[in-house]
Structures are given as structure tokens and as C-alpha cells.
């Protein structure tokens, strides 16, 4: 009965979208946002993108559980986090171009604050592996000056906060097989095939 009485109070989807867009805009203008997130579809499944005022800070595959990623971002960076369905559009566009083979490198500001210590050294080195090429875990270990740390290189790649954009998928086993990947081995093989042309 009271439900019927108040049915007219419920917003329609257009109102919801308009209010959310306005909140994102007002929050940005008031400098109140720690993190902006957006989800995009891709050939390797839905991707969560997250950005700060410094640049792209996180790309997450569905396997990482996006709800948990949001919780981690809030803890590590700040809890003033909002989804903006129209945000990070430069990132979304460059990823689209990459997936269609029209782009071989990314031109984006990145925020590497989620990678610490040795992992950060590895992540910083990965863009040196060119599109269409691969390197073994041992080769990357030598390149960052820790020749015996190939296992740690594997961990650093698996926890790369910016997969795809920072190309950890180009680091493979010494026997040439793809090896593990945050987005799953199938996704890794798909990306290597894409880059092989």
C-alpha cells in the first residue's frame, strides 16, 4: 500500500546517469577524488581501469575480482573513489586500438605507486620489450641487474598493476611457452598471437 503511495519517487535510469555524471563532475571540480574507475569490455574479458590525478594506476582482469580491487584501491590510495562510465576515455580508446592491432605502444601517463621495490624495477623495465617480441624471465632478471631472481621476476609480472599497458605478457618461459598470467594463460596466448600478426 505505502509502496504504491511512493512509487513516483523512484528515479528512472536517465536520472540516475545524470546524477552520477554530475557527482563525478562536482567532485572533480572540488578536488575530492582519490581514484576514478571505469569498466570496459575487451577480447580478454571485462577490464577495470583506475586512474588518479597522476595517471593510470590499475588495470584489472575479471579474474582479480573487481570488487576486491576497488577495496584495495581505496585502502592503498584513498577511499574517495567513484566510477565514471565516461571517464578514462583516452585509456579506453588506446586499448581499443591495441586490441584491433591499430596500436603497438601506449602513450599514457601512468602512476606506478602500486608497484614497490624490486617489482617496480621490473615493471619499469617491461616497456623496453617491443611489440611482437618476447623475453624470458631469466633475461628480464639479467636486464634489471638481478640475474638469479627470475622467480621474483615471475611474481613481479604476475602482480604488475598495469597489465596490457605495461607489457608483462611479453615475458615468457625460457622454453618459449607463455607461462602464467594475471589474465589467465589463454589471454596471454591471445595477446602474443595478436602481436605476432
Amino acid at each position: 500500500m505505502t509502496d504504491a503511495l511512493f512509487a513516483g519517487l523512484d528515479p528512472d535510469p536517465a536520472t540516475r546517469d545524470r546524477l552520477r555524471a554530475r557527482l563525478v563532475r562536482d567532485a572533480a571540480a572540488a578536488d575530492l577524488l582519490d581514484v576514478v574507475v571505469r569498466t570496459v569490455d575487451s577480447p580478454v574479458g571485462p577490464l577495470l581501469l583506475a586512474g588518479t590525478d597522476r595517471g593510470l594506476v590499475k588495470v584489472a582482469f575479471a579474474r582479480e575480482d573487481h570488487d576486491r580491487v576497488l577495496a584495495t584501491l581505496a585502502t592503498e590510495i584513498g577511499p574517495r573513489l567513484l566510477a565514471d562510465p565516461a571517464g578514462l576515455d583516452d585509456v579506453a580508446r588506446q586499448l581499443d586500438q591495441y586490441f584491433t592491432g591499430a596500436r603497438t605502444s601506449f602513450d599514457l601517463d601512468v602512476d606506478l605507486r602500486l608497484a614497490h621495490g624490486f617489482r617496480r624495477d621490473v615493471v619499469a623495465h617491461l616497456p623496453a620489450i617491443a611489440y611482437g617480441h618476447t623475453a624470458s624471465y631469466a633475461e628480464v632478471a639479467r636486464a634489471v641487474g638481478r640475474p638469479r631472481a627470475s622467480r621474483a621476476v615471475g611474481t613481479a609480472c604476475a602482480r604488475n598493476p598495469l597489465p596490457l599497458v605495461v607489457p608483462c605478457h611479453r615475458v615468457v618461459r625460457s622454453d618459449g611457452t607463455p607461462g602464467q598470467y594475471g589474465g589467465g594463460e589463454r589471454a596471454k596466448r591471445w595477446l602474443l598471437d595478436l602481436e605476432a600478426g
Binding site: F6, G8, A71, A74, T75, L81, L82
Partner: peptide
């Protein structure tokens, strides 16, 4: 340290009902 979205934004409809 909970993320504002969705912890707070999940109540967007309720909050609008109150304003209306």
C-alpha cells in the same frame, strides 16, 4: 577506508526518494 563507490553510491535511489 571503504571505497565510496559502491559502499555509499548503492543508496543513490533511496537518497533521491528522500529528497523528492
Amino acid at each position: 577506508t571503504l571505497p565510496f563507490d559502491p559502499t555509499a553510491t548503492q543508496y543513490a535511489d533511496t537518497v533521491l526518494r528522500v529528497c523528492r
